[in-house]
């Protein structure tokens, strides 16, 4: 189901407005503008009252055929000799007319359906521009009010308690409390990263919609939540000695 490209819609709207604006007198020129279909000119001819479905030139032709038939008894043996007096041409001298339109899909093998596309300018670029403005404004305002931390000068002999890694590694540091360092610091993140890289080669399901790939979606959600929860525990729920605390009781031990 494709939509009509908007420049065509706009053009049609403009044409409609032009027609309405200049009254009925403009109807004929407007029709001429838009390149009339073959049967159109006959509609203006006096036979319009007879029913618009039969083109006037066909009616003419049948009338002349009737006259011929009426003349025929006067000249016996005539039917063969009295072939149509004139070639059956249309009003403009056409010798062809449009019988039907065959849609391409019914007789051709259409390999790629045309996709509904929009111009990158302005539709995409404008959106990107606005998004970048928003993020710049957000960062600017945030940076005016919140200062980046600068603690006292680094001192190798004075270990702060607790010592925490950057927040995105706090999930790993959290794992360190549960497993041997080699498992927590290397094996688990290594396997996670490896599986992440291999995801497209492991997942053989061709479907894109989430409801048709429930297993993959659930697995990824569990995976993402696993790290998110660990990072949050490591960030906010670990105090001195990396012991479990509640931030609302013991305060925050977290620097960004």
């Amino acid at each position: 189901m494709t939509e009509v490209p908007e420049h065509l819609l706009r053009r049609a709207k403009e044409a409609r407005e032009r027609m309405e604006g200049s009254g009925e007198s403009a109807e004929a020129p407007a029709a001429a503008d838009s390149g009339p279909p073959p049967a159109e000119p006959t509609a203006a001819e006096p036979t319009a009252g007879e029913g618009e479905k039969i083109p006037a030139h066909l009616l003419d032709r049948s009338r002349s055929a009737e006259e011929q038939a009426a003349m025929a008894p006067a000249a016996p043996g005539g039917p063969v000799a009295a072939a149509p007096p004139s070639l059956p041409t249309g009003p403009g001298g056409h010798t062809q007319r449009l019988l039907t339109v065959v849609k391409s899909g019914s007789i051709q093998d259409v390999k790629a359906m045309p996709q509904d596309r929009v111009h990158v300018w302005p539709h995409l670029l404008l959106g990107e521009f606005v998004a970048s403005l928003f993020i710049t404004a957000f960062l600017l305002i945030f940076s005016v009010f919140v200062n980046a931390p600068l603690l006292e000068l680094a001192n190798v002999n004075e270990t702060p308690n607790p010592s925490k890694a950057p927040w995105y590694f706090l999930g790993l540091q959290e794992l360190l409390t549960m497993f041997h360092p080699m498992v927590a610091g290397v094996t688990i993140p290594g396997i996670a990263l490896f599986l992440l890289i291999l995801a497209p080669y492991i997942d053989r399901n061709k479907e894109n919609a989430p409801e048709k790939r429930k297993f993959a979606v659930s697995l990824m959600t569990v995976h993402l939540m696993f790290w998110a929860v660990l990072v949050m525990i490591g960030s906010f729920f670990r105090g001195p000695g990396f012991n479990f605390i509640f931030p609302w009781q013991d305060g925050l031990f977290f620097d960004f």
Partner: peptide, 25 residues
């Protein structure tokens, strides 16, 4: 980038991080 300010936060965050990588088999 975390290390560059060379304050206590930088030094010890990086110490924790690189200690973890030191456990590579």
């Amino acid at each position: 980038g975390y290390l560059l300010p060379w304050d206590q936060l930088a030094l010890w965050a990086v110490t924790v991080g690189t200690n973890m990588m030191g456990f590579t088999p």
